[in-house]
C-alpha cells in the first residue's frame, strides 16, 4: 500500500462529513418533513404559523385560479402559479377548514412552479397559497363561495 494510514483516515472522515452535510441539505431543501405542526391545527392562524413560523409574508407574485362560486365544496379545482424563480415549494390552505393546511408541493429539476389540484372546502372561505422562493415567502388568496360544503 502506498498511502499512509493517517491520510486514509483523514480522507474517510472528510467524505463522511460531506455525506452527512449532503444528506442534511437534501432533507431540508428537497424533502422538508411532513408538516405535522400545520396539519394538527384546527384554526387558520396557528396552522399557518405551524407551516411558516413567524416569517414575513410578501403579498405579491402568486396567482390563484379558483372558482368564485363552487357548487360542491368536496371538490374545488385550484391552480396556483407564480412568476418567481427558484421556487422551492407551494403550499395551500383553506382558512375556514377544520384542518386549514391542505397540501404542499416541492419543485425539483426542471419542473415549473405550477400546480393544479382539487381541494375540499367546508364553507365559503379564502384559498390561500404560500410560495417559498429564494428563501422568501410570498402569498396570494382567492375567495370561494361554497354552496354545498365538502365533508372535510
Amino acid at each position: 500500500m502506498n498511502f499512509s494510514k493517517r491520510k486514509f483516515i483523514q480522507g474517510s472522515l472528510y467524505s463522511g462529513a460531506i455525506a452527512i452535510l449532503g444528506k442534511a441539505t437534501f432533507l431540508q431543501s428537497a424533502f422538508a418533513e411532513w408538516p405535522t405542526a400545520a396539519f394538527d391545527e384546527t384554526e387558520y392562524g396557528p396552522a399557518l404559523k405551524g407551516l411558516i413560523g413567524d416569517t414575513e409574508l410578501l403579498e405579491s407574485n402568486v396567482t390563484i385560479d379558483a372558482p368564485a362560486i363552487a357548487e360542491n365544496g368536496a371538490t374545488v379545482p385550484v391552480k396556483v402559479s407564480t412568476d418567481l424563480d427558484n421556487v422551492e415549494w407551494i403550499s395551500l390552505l383553506g382558512d375556514k377548514n377544520p384542518r386549514p393546511w391542505i397540501s404542499r408541493f416541492y419543485f425539483h429539476g426542471k419542473s415549473k412552479p405550477f400546480v393544479s389540484t382539487r381541494i375540499k372546502l367546508r364553507e365559503s372561505s379564502n384559498v390561500v397559497a404560500i410560495v417559498k422562493a429564494d428563501g422568501k415567502l410570498y402569498t396570494g388568496k382567492s375567495a370561494v363561495k361554497v354552496t354545498a360544503g365538502g365533508c372535510v
Binding site: A32, A74, G94, I102, F105
Partner: peptide, 19 residues
C-alpha cells in the same frame, strides 16, 4: 424526482394532480 408533495385531509377524494 421532479415534483413531490405532502398532502393532508383537505385534498379531495380521488385526487387530481396536474403539473
Amino acid at each position: 424526482i421532479i415534483i413531490s408533495g405532502d398532502w393532508g385531509t383537505g385534498v379531495s377524494k380521488n385526487p387530481y394532480w396536474s403539473f
